[in-house]
Design a protein around this nucleic acid. Structure first.
Length: 886
RNA sequence: AGGGGCGUAGCUCAGCUGGUUUAGAGCGCUUCAGUCACAUUGAAGAGGUCAUCGGUUCGAAUCCGAUCGUCCCUACCA
């Protein structure tokens, strides 16, 4: 027997690396433009220093399923991989590493620091791409890109210059979210608001006598940030607030430092919040800044970049803002300005990266105007040129696009593309792609300028300012920033890409901005479909995180269960847009599926074929049935794929393989132990197995490739990867119906066995009435363990066996001495009651004239059929009861 | 505070434009099965008033409204 060829157990670790190497050697993942239809995916580039976590596994498994499916569908599939330089994340890692060596970033300077950063990148960068190979990802590695490689950095710089010259990039003083730990501004989107326990301090501000001395009158403000009072520029009340009319035109004194500030009026102040008096601190609060603009208030910054009070604060200079808060409260208490302290919970912004409390800070930053870009990008999605799956994210997207604020694109970091603005000694600046061009431009202003006089802007650009070009720049980095540039061959062929798989958390950061860049530079959406995955959570619904330690190491899982099993484990629970509740038992289920596939092939492989053996009736029926069942299922699978219901597609394939093929088909055609199988059945079985492997391949690439080689002699360079997806053929639906009826009959007879404790080996007899499709009797006989079947007009003494009703077909299993009439009567009565209830419901419907008048004919016909079937069922049950009660 | 999603078997979810659904799947659970591909198995079975209330309709898990629960997003009232 050939069975010896195949190990008894499937060992993924013995198989996966071998095939991945084979695929690489043969360049199966590589794509070049040709005359076939392209199918393109760009990877959501993971952080260059990142390591594989479960979120990546989910995302990249989905990507790989789509790309492998497209490849087998005959498209020219190209999956472009790469990594993102991730300026903040990478820089903070390098800073931490240097810190551990006692090195301070500022001490070594920009150039030296960048050397360390590149070293770090060389060492750790791309680990994650190696890990993706373990997962089986069929990326075109020859096309691997990095967002900070020279060509892509140039694209970023060109883009900046392009928008600057278009007048959409401007430098502005803005209130930004300052992270005092990372020493950088972070975007609104990188701020997480958390409810935080704090206090509400009620402070007395005395009215000034006009000479800078306090009178005995005072007003009360309520604040959570008493350490900022030294930066107050005014006290503001609502002009409609009668309680504060007396304050009009007055000046008050800031406690402790006795600086005089005016009382002003502005609608912004809520009358019923706090005391109705608001201290206005333009330098340290976003809203106050805006009030300040309206009322021309001076801006006094008293907190420095590190979150410490500076000399302008006059008191508590050099103290950290939180220490200063504690100390100033004490001082205010001592000076008699503290009226009361309330407990108060308020939302406070924290930095996503460092978890430091965000300090609103005035800062010179670069901005990109969003108005037009956002309007276009909104239209792209609303017009359906780009679809979101699931659709619900269109709402979120619309909300963002309609309220998009200008994009702060500068970051106070070193790791990233440096802003190409060059300052002249007089403070003016020019924006050019290269220092040479900048010098030229500067000399146009002032001919005396030399290269060394120009100082380039210290800031780098936001990482997203490079990743938004990704779908374009991976193919043709020359294109961004150059509308006149003719797309190169790759860009012309691969753009727009087809599908993007990503998380909804970066819908605005990345997805929206890619659409903006795509529309701006290509005049076309960058992808047709965006499939949003959920967040991977543990069984308890917690987000996976390092600190909780609830995130398994995907590589360990792959080592233990195999990549195919891990892929299945992720896909089993991954309906689009819903969070994923991951549990290792799902991976075990995937591993079990591998074992099932493996063992089913061992069975087939063990058969000996006898060319002269006739095909058994049951086998002939099984072959016809499975061929039809396969076609019907392929239709369903294709439908699921077309709607991005990947886990449904997987489940459909899973059931086709396990239930239909293994439990029904193979059991039907399986020859007696040691007996040979006929040629027709054997060949059909192999062709079914071949089709099944192809269906399974996109989700389980390794085991399918391994088994596919055993199906036929394989020549070097052949692969299941490029085998065509099986197509659905026309099938006989009525035949499938009759076969299903047979299956129900088999289940019913097995039920009788279980109930009566009849061992499987003990053969039974079966009588059926003519309403049962007789062609199916060989099938029923084989799988229900029957020694004989007989078509009769009358079952005779029904007390001598068990009568069964399968849909409307009547069956009878003669059983001598095993039947308890009372039990049978009770069972039948229960069934009768159920049928009668059902009939009643149907009749209520049918006797309703409105129903008959309004419902479509087909629906009414269905109800009539239900009625007829129920009546015939009731009749036969009643007959059986009558016979039993004799 | 505003916006959105979700609430169907123990768990995770299908159920697409209301009508062959007095509701389905996978896992889990219960019972039985041991040398014949597979115990990483097979067979049989139990399990849900579709969150609650009201409305529209001949007909509602499905549409509408309210309530409760839950999650997410946006904003932040000092």
């Amino acid at each position: 027997m050939k069975q010896a060829d195949l190990p008894a157990k499937y060992d993924a670790s013995q198989v996966e690396d071998k095939w991945y190497a084979y695929w690489l050697e043969n360049k199966f993942f590589h794509s070049e433009p040709n005359d076939k239809e392209p199918y393109t995916i760009v990877i959501p580039p993971p952080n260059v220093t990142g390591i594989l976590h479960m979120g990546h596994v989910l995302n990249n498994t989905l990507n790989d399923v789509l790309i492998r499916k497209a490849r087998m569908d005959g498209k020219n599939a190209c999956w472009v991989p790469g990594t993102d330089h991730a300026s903040i994340a990478t820089e903070s890692k390098v800073v931490a590493k240097l810190k551990a060596q006692g090195i301070n970033k500022e001490d070594i300077g920009r150039e030296e620091f960048l050397k360390h950063a590149w070293e770090w990148k060389e060492e750790h960068g791309g680990i994650i791409l190696q890990q993706l190979r373990k997962l089986g990802c069929s990326c075109d590695w020859d096309r691997t890109r990095f967002t900070m490689e020279p060509a892509l950095s140039e694209a970023v710089i060109n883009t900046f210059v392009y928008f600057y010259k278009k007048g959409w990039i401007y430098k502005g003083v803005r209130m930004v979210n300052w992270d005092p730990e990372a020493l950088t501004a972070v975007s609104d989107d990188e701020v997480i608001h958390k409810d935080t326990q704090s206090h509400f301090y009620h402070l007395k501000y005395y009215i000034s006598d006009g000479q800078g001395h306090p009178t005995d009158k005072y007003l009360v403000i309520a604040t959570t940030r008493p350490e900022t009072i030294m930066a107050d520029a005014a006290i503001c009340v609502n002009p409609k607030d009668e309680r504060h009319f007396w304050l009009k035109g007055k000046k008050v004194l800031i406690p402790l430092i006795n600086r005089e500030i005016p009382v002003i009026e502005d609608d912004y102040v809520e009358m019923d919040f706090g005391t109705g008096c608001l201290k206005v601190t333009p330098a340290h609060d976003v809203h106050d800044y805006e009030i300040g603009l309206r009322h021309n208030l001076p801006v006094l910054e008293i907190i420095d970049d590190h979150g410490k009070l500076n000399e302008k604060a006059q008191i508590l200079v050099g103290e950290d803002r939180f220490v200063a808060r504690k100390k100033i409260v004490k001082m205010l208490e001592e000076s008699g300005n503290l009226l009361k302290v309330e407990d108060y919970t308020s939302p406070v912004g924290y930095s996503e990266r460092t978890d430091a409390v965000i300090e609103p800070k005035l800062s010179a930053q670069w901005f990109l105007k969003m108005e037009k870009l956002a309007a276009t990008a909104l239209e792209t999605v609303e017009s359906g040129r780009t679809n979101f799956i699931p659709e619900k994210y269109v709402n979120t997207y619309r909300h963002w696009m309609e309220n998009a604020r200008d994009w702060c694109i500068s970051r106070q970091l070193w790791w990233g593309q440096r802003i190409p603005a060059y300052y002249l000694p007089d403070g003016s600046y020019v924006v050019e792609a290269t220092p040479e061009a900048a010098l030229k431009a500067a000399q146009a202003i002032n001919p005396a300028i030399k290269a060394e006089d120009l100082k380039q802007d210290e800031d780098v650009l936001d990482t997203w300012f490079s990743s938004w070009l990704w779908p374009i720049s991976v193919s043709d980095p020359e294109k961004p920033g150059h509308p006149e540039h003719q797309p190169n061959k790759d860009l012309a062929y691969y753009y727009p890409t087809n599908d993007l798989v990503t998380g909804p958390d970066i819908i605005f950061f990345w997805v929206a901005r890619m659409i903006m860049a795509g529309e701006e530079f290509m005049g076309k959406e960058p992808f047709s479909n965006v499939y949003f995955t959920g967040i991977v959570r543990d069984k308890l619904g917690r987000k996976m995180s390092k600190t909780l330690g609830n995130s398994p190491d995907p590589l360990k899982l792959i080592a233990e269960y195999g990549a195919d099993a891990v892929r299945i484990g992720m896909l089993l629970c991954s309906s689009a847009g819903n969070d994923i509740f991951y549990d290792e038992s799902q991976v075990q289920q995937g591993r079990n599926f591998c074992a099932k596939i493996w063992n089913s092939f061992r069975l087939i492989q063990g058969w000996t074929v006898d060319d002269s053996a006739p095909q058994a009736e049951a086998s002939a029926l099984a072959v016809k049935w499975f061929r039809d069942q396969l076609s019907r299922t392929i239709e369903t699978v294709e439908d699921h794929y077309s709607k991005f219901r990947i886990s449904d597609a997987l489940m459909t394939i899973y059931k086709l393989f396990w239930d239909e093929f293994c439990s029904w088909y193979l059991e039907l055609v399986k020859p007696a132990w040691g007996a040979p199988i006929d040629r027709a059945t054997y060949d059909a079985t192999l062709s079914f197995f071949d089709a099944l492997l192809k269906l399974v391949h996109p989700v389980m690439p390794f085991i399918t490739e391994e088994l596919w080689q055993h199906l036929a002699e394989r020549k070097e360079g052949e692969t299941i990867m490029y085998a065509a997806t099986p197509k659905a053929q026309a099938y006989d639906a009525a035949f499938l119906e009759r076969f299903d009826l047979a299956r129900e009959a088999i289940v019913a007879i097995r039920g009788v066995r279980a109930q009566k404790n009849i061992p499987p080996k003990e053969a039974l007899d079966l009588k059926v009435k003519a309403s049962f499709p007789q062609e199916m009797l060989p099938v029923v006989a084989k799988l229900a363990g029957l020694s004989g079947t007989e078509v009769v007009a009358d079952f005779g003494d029904t007390a001598m066996g068990v009568a069964l009703l399968v849909r409307t077909a009547e069956l009878f299993v003669p059983l001598t001495g095993l039947v308890n009439a009372d039990e049978e009567i009770a069972k039948l009565e229960a069934e009768l009651a159920h049928k009668k209830g059902f009939l009643e419901g149907v009749r209520r419907k049918l006797s309703n004239e409105q129903f008959v008048a309004h419902a479509p004919e087909a629906v009414v016909a269905v109800e009539r059929k239900k009625e007829a079937d129920a009546l015939s069922a009731i009749e036969s049950i009643e007959n059986q009861l009558k016979a039993l009660r004799k």
